[in-house]
Every structure is written in structure tokens, then in C-alpha cells.
Design a protein around this nucleic acid. Sequence first.
RNA 1: UCCUGAGUAGCUCAAUGGCAGAGCAUCCGGCUGUUAACCGGAGGGUUGUAGGUUCGAGUCCUACCUCAGGAGCCA
Length: 463
Amino acid sequence: MITPSVRQLFRETKDYLDREIAVCGWVRTVRDSRTFGFIELNDGTFFRNLQVVFDNRLANFEDVARLNVGASLRVKGLLVSTPQAKQPFELKAGEVEVEGASTPDFPLQKKRHSFEFLREIAHLRTRTNTFSAVFRVRSLAAQAIHNFFQERGFIWVHTPIVTASDCEGAGEMFRVTTLDPLSPPLDSRGQVDYTQDFFGRQANLTVSGQLNVETFCMAFQKVYTFGPTFRAENSNTARHAAEFWMIEPEIAFADLQDNMRLAEDMVKHLIGSILEKAPEEMEFFNRMIDPGLLDRLQRVAEARFEKITYTEAIGILEKAPVSFEFPAEWGKDLQTEHERYLSEKVFQKPVFVTDYPKTIKAFYMRLNDDDRTVAAMDLLVPGVGEIIGGSQREERYDVLRQRIEEMGLNPEDYGWYLDLRKFGGCRHAGYGLGFERAIMYLTGMGNIRDVIPFPRTVKTIHF
RNA sequence: UCCUGAGUAGCUCAAUGGCAGAGCAUCCGGCUGUUAACCGGAGGGUUGUAGGUUCGAGUCCUACCUCAGGAGCCA
């Protein structure tokens, strides 16, 4: 007997109608009367459920009618068309085999649950409509990003997770060590002796693959990373996690304009791909999570992203007819309230802000001719805020070395990075896309903890 | 880390300092086409923790814990 997925039933209905089939899945709800009943069966392949009809001709009718939500079943029967009903077809069960029963205390009910509650049962929340949709979109988005870069000849580089560079300046890092925390070996000055540690020196989890991937950029021209990243910041917001995934493309013989073009093309490709491949999920997000989502995404797919310089942004903010808690001031970083105002009120679409003061940006960003700004760009999107941060990189050896020193860093720690400028360095640029923030933007989900399977945040590492 | 708010039944929430409740879920019964099915009934509580004020505290006070929203840091 053929065992099609529920996705196949919905997508290629004609192939299965009026045929005997078997379907495996999990019970979302059971409704029964004296002699018959209905099961909503979800098999994980499709957003919608398959309706199973069963009656007392089943040998185990009583057991089936009393099934608890969450049970896993294998149902054999005839797939019939139901043109007058809410669902296009249903499975008339000839045999229902209970693979795994559930119990009355299955936590998921046939009602809306708060996301806070569902986070406490992350091992079960995948069986809800929302998380079924979120994680299918997440999977599709990851593939869409790979497709985008691979189609354009980019090389995917697996930059290291464990790194010895502890001065990338991107945030607090998690220490990686095999030393005994209760009695670490000490050196002659009473400090922890890391020469006896596994790597012979301090090691950390990566906060960015950028410096490493630049080496590949100088050999392959077009490269990207896509992998996990770790930040030990004590951040308690809906947009931060200690473990998240990041995509970091890096392109050679390219400047900031090329960089922004790439970022815009990528975001548009991503949106188009998800709208095409997950229409049911996106329609659900639009209806239940974020009314207006589809309109907004479709407009973005067509619009040109706005581009303004930091200096222009400050000008707009200074003239803004609203009072900010912190007034915008040239030389200071944009506050969240400023970014929201720009993307949500002024432009109402994604906007690149470029050319920030060098004092508030990283050492590797290319110094502009004005000597006070760098060729940086942040992409701000309505609802989520900063989704991409990038720059043209400083390719001039002397300037880079001087910037490292200006920022109080030690050039010796950046020997191999400086080498790239010494041996055939060239113009190049890149950016980092927060994968989870992209998923939030695509789905309208408001909390990063709800777009990561098992989120790691401050004081939280369940599951 | 800072600011604000919240913690009461499995879930979502009520309860003027005076008998701790509802809807949903669960269990039992009914129902021949349901769609978060419907109808009837039942069970279900150390009110986050520890102190304090009071004749009396879910309610007021203090500390702590947890969660949420906002901010900072950033992707």
C-alpha cells in the first residue's frame, strides 16, 4: 500500500483520490459521536492536517475515540473528495493502528497557548501550528540562502567554531577550556596558566567568522559563512540569543555599493523564495501572528531599498517632529528608537544607513576620505531593527595598522590578518546577516526565542 | 546590567483587606458529518519563595526567585 505524505495529498491530490492509502502522523484533535468520529492528523510534512473519519466498524473504535491528543497513528483507508466541506478531502479509515498512545496530561490543548508557556515545553511545541510553520520556514530560508550564494558562484566556508582570537571586538566571548575550574594551574605570577590548557592558550567560541573568511575571500573572491555564533553578552531582549546563526558573505574587488547591492538582492531572493515555497505557512503568519505581513513583504520585494548616510540620518532625526528619549547627535550611535523611526515611520521599508563615524565602528572598516567616517552599512527593517551589519574592509596596510593601534588593539594579534593586505590585498567588502532576525522579519514572530529550536539565553539552557 | 510590569487550578485569566472563582483542558454520560464540534455532570488550589503588618492577607510592606515588555550591547 502506498504511504504518501500529507504534503503529497494536498499538492498532488488527483494522484491519490479514491485510492487506498496509508498515512502516519500525530493526533491534533479527536471529535467523536456515538458511532463515528473525526481525527485531525498532522504528519509534519505540511501545515494543514488530514481529516480522518472513522466509525464503529473499526475493531478498535472505542480506543480510537478515546485517543488523547499527541498520539501517533498509522491509518489505512480510502481517500475521498469532500467538496462541500472545509477540507478538500478526507481519509475514510479502514484500519487505525496506534503506534504510540498519549495521555490526558499532554500539555498542548486545542486552544491558543502563550509563547511563554510553549517555551517551557520546547520539546513539544514543534507540534503546534505556529512552530510547525516557523521551523519549516527556517529550513526553507537556510536553503534559500545557500541557493542564492551557490547560484552566484560563492564558496561556502566553514570557519572555526573555536577560536584563539579574543579581540574581534564583537562582544563578550565564551571561554573554551579543559582546565579544572576549582584548581587551575597557575603561573609564577599567580595567574591561570593557559599554556597548560588544551590549546596551549586561551580559546573561545567564535563571535564572527569574518576575519577568517576574509582569507578565503582573497583566494576565491566570493565566499560566505553560514554557521553558529556565540555571544556571552548579558542581553535580555527579544532580539538577542547567546547562540545564534549568522551568514557572512565577503566579496573581493568590490566596494560598499556592491556590498549593499548583494545584501538587497539576497533579502529579496529570500522573501521571494519563502513566499513561493511556504504559502500556507506565510498565510498563517499573516492571519494569526502579524496582520499586514504579506503586504509588507511583497512591497519590499518590489521596492528599492532606501540608502542614506549616517550624517543624513542624524539630520532627519534632528528635524523629526517627535521627541526621542535620547536626542540624535553626530558622533553617537543610533538608538533603537532612532532606527525604528527611520525604518518604520520615515521610509516604511528596509533602509541602509551608511558611513558611520569611525569612532563607533570596528577597526577593519575602510576609512573614508573625510577621515572621520568609515564605509559601513547597517540594514534596518521595520519591526526587527538591525538585520544586517557590514562594511567595505580596510585594504590599505598602513591605514589598517594605524586603525588597530588607534583602537587600542595590538597589531601583533592581527599578524595574519594584516598579511592579507601585504600579499596582494584588494578592495573587498562583506556583511553579517543575523539568521534568526531574518526569520523574525519573514514570519512576523516577535521573539528570537521562538525562531530557534532550543534557544540559549542568559540563565536559560533547558533542553 | 538598568527601568517598568506580572506571578492564583494543566492553560488563559477574575476575585473592594473578609467563604478562592470562570472559560478551556481532563474524567464520566449524551449525540449519525464534525471543523478550537456541541449538550449535561464531576474532580481539580501550600495564590512564585521567605519574612512582616493585621482580629483577618491572593490583596498591604520588605527581600529574593522567575517570566514578560522597554533600554543598553549587537546580528
